[in-house]
Structure formats: structure tokens, C-alpha cells
């Protein structure tokens, strides 16, 4: 199958709150798809359904050719092939950077310590943190922690990477380092589904941009089209707010 993710008629509710109300989305292998949209529109929920951190209320999702919504699928085996990077990094605080990268390789993939460490160091070098192997996460800056988190995912050799606002918790001057790593990853052909507020990244790196609002996909297409010349009014309003927040009231007055 050349489709990495196929989402059909996805619904998700938290109790009475309907967060996703009928999502259809396909990500082909090697594609970089950026999801944008206002806060609370269900972007994180959509992403978390792709690796079943949230169970859909209705609908089907095929991830890497396996129906992940099938209760009998080998979930852990499938998750090994899907990397995920969180807004809050979620590095394991009691482990050094190197151990963060090796623990799942050794416990889950059953790699030897030597092999796991070799792969871990390769990936640390790849994100420019080869000298931080012995450090604890608490001693790293936010940007460094997020790059370690990316390296941790990459150490498992994933075929698909999910990013949930990876730079939103970072100081502005640290955002660039993380985006550079992600850009390199995209260039190398990784399939990526990225929730982001970085419009410049979406414009430059994405093959496709998806705009979500109110639990549905409002509009999607090439970055130039969606970001440069959106057809939907809701997209236009959102972009106006994001790209020119100080002129919000003027825009609203129009």
C-alpha cells in the first residue's frame, strides 16, 4: 500500500462533547501534511487517533496498511513503526539522553545494548546533540529536549512521524533548530503528519496543508493555495488572525 494513513468518516466524542465530526483524510507515503486550525478544533485529537492514543467513536483508520481501529490488530507492533513527538517533549526524566533513546530499542525491539547505543548516537548526531548523550533531560533547553525527543522516535526506525505542535512550548529563538531537524527529515523522504502553528514551515515544507475547524476539515490543498489564496471564509479569518494578530480588530470590522 502506498498510503501511509487512510482515515474514513472519523468521529470522536469526549462524553457529550463532539470533537471530530466526520474526518476523511489520506496521507500517501513520503508526503508531508501540515494540519492547521484554531485552538480546540480537534487537531491533536485527530493526530492521536492515528496511533490510537485516543480511540475513535466511529470510523476506520488504516495506518501503515494495518487497520488500527480493528480491536484485534497488533497495536504495540504497529506503534513501533509510528513515531510521535509531543508539544511537551515527554522525555523520560529519570533517564539520561542516551537511555531515553535506547530503552525502547532494547526492551521492545530487543536490540543489544551495543547496537542500540550505536543507533542512538547516530540519531543524536543527526539532530546535532551528539555531545549530550550523558545529560539528563532537565539540564537541556526546551529546543534540545525536543530534538532529543525526535531522535528518540527516529531510533525506532519509524515509517511515519506524527508531530503535535512540536515548537509551541519553545522560546522563539529555539524554534528554528527544531524546525531545521524536521525540514531535514522531510527532505530525506519521511512521511510526516504535522500539527503546527508555524505557517512558514507549512508553506515551505508541506506537500499539502489541511485546515480544520470545529471538528471537520474545512479546506485542504497545496500550501500556496490554502495559505495564499484560501477559498473558504473560515480559513481566511483564521489566517488573518495568525499572520497579523495585531490587526485583528481591523480585520473583524471589514
Amino acid at each position: 500500500m502506498s498510503d501511509a494513513v487512510v482515515i474514513e468518516d472519523l468521529h470522536k466524542s469526549f462524553g457529550p462533547l463532539e470533537v471530530l465530526t466526520g474526518i476523511d483524510l489520506t496521507v500517501t507515503s513520503g508526503e508531508v501534511v501540515c494540519v492547521i486550525g484554531p485552538s480546540g478544533s480537534g487537531k491533536s485529537t485527530l493526530l492521536r487517533c492515528v496511533n490510537l492514543l485516543e480511540s475513535p467513536t466511529r470510523g476506520r483508520i488504516h495506518t501503515l496498511g494495518v487497520e488500527i481501529t480493528d480491536p484485534d490488530c497488533e497495536l504495540d507492533a504497529l506503534r513501533r513503526r509510528i513515531g510521535m513527538v509531543f508539544q511537551q517533549f515527554n522525555l523520560f526524566g529519570h533517564l539520561t539522553v542516551l537511555d531515553n533513546l535506547t530503552i525502547a530499542q532494547r526492551r521492545v525491539l530487543r536490540r543489544t545494548r551495543a547496537e542500540a547505543e550505536r543507533i542512538a548516537r547516530e540519531n543524536l548526531d543527526r539532530v546535532g546533540l551528539g555531545d549530550k548523550a550523558g545529560a539528563y533531560p532537565a539540564h537541556l533547553s526546551g529546543g534540545q529536549q525536543q530534538r532529543v525527543a525526535i531522535a528518540r522516535s527516529l531510533s525506532m526506525g519509524p515509517e511515519l512521524m506524527l508531530f503535535d505542535e512540536p515548537t509551541s512550548a519553545l522560546d522563539p529563538e529555539l524554534v528554528g533548530d527544531v524546525l531545521t531537524v524536521m525540514r531535514d527529515l522531510a527532505t530525506e523522504g519521511m512521511t510526516m503528519l504535522v500539527v503546527t502553528h508555524e505557517m512558514a514551515f507549512a508553506r515551505d515544507v508541506a506537500d499539502r496543508v489541511v485546515f480544520m475547524d470545529g471538528g471537520v476539515i474545512v479546506e485542504q490543498g497545496a500550501p500556496a493555495a490554502v495559505l495564499g489564496d484560501p477559498t473558504e471564509e473560515r480559513t481566511r479569518t483564521f489566517l488573518r488572525r495568525v499572520l497579523d494578530p495585531t490587526h485583528l480588530s481591523d480585520a473583524e470590522l471589514d
Binding site: 504495540d76 506503534r79 513501533r80 510521535m84 509531543f86 515527554n90 525502547a104 521492545v108
Partner: peptide, 9 residues
């Protein structure tokens, strides 16, 4: 969640 995402049971 991070651990489960890495495929740990």
C-alpha cells in the same frame, strides 16, 4: 503516552 507510542506494552 510517550512510552506507549514507542511500542511498549
Amino acid at each position: 503516552e510517550a512510552a506507549r507510542t514507542l511500542g511498549m506494552p
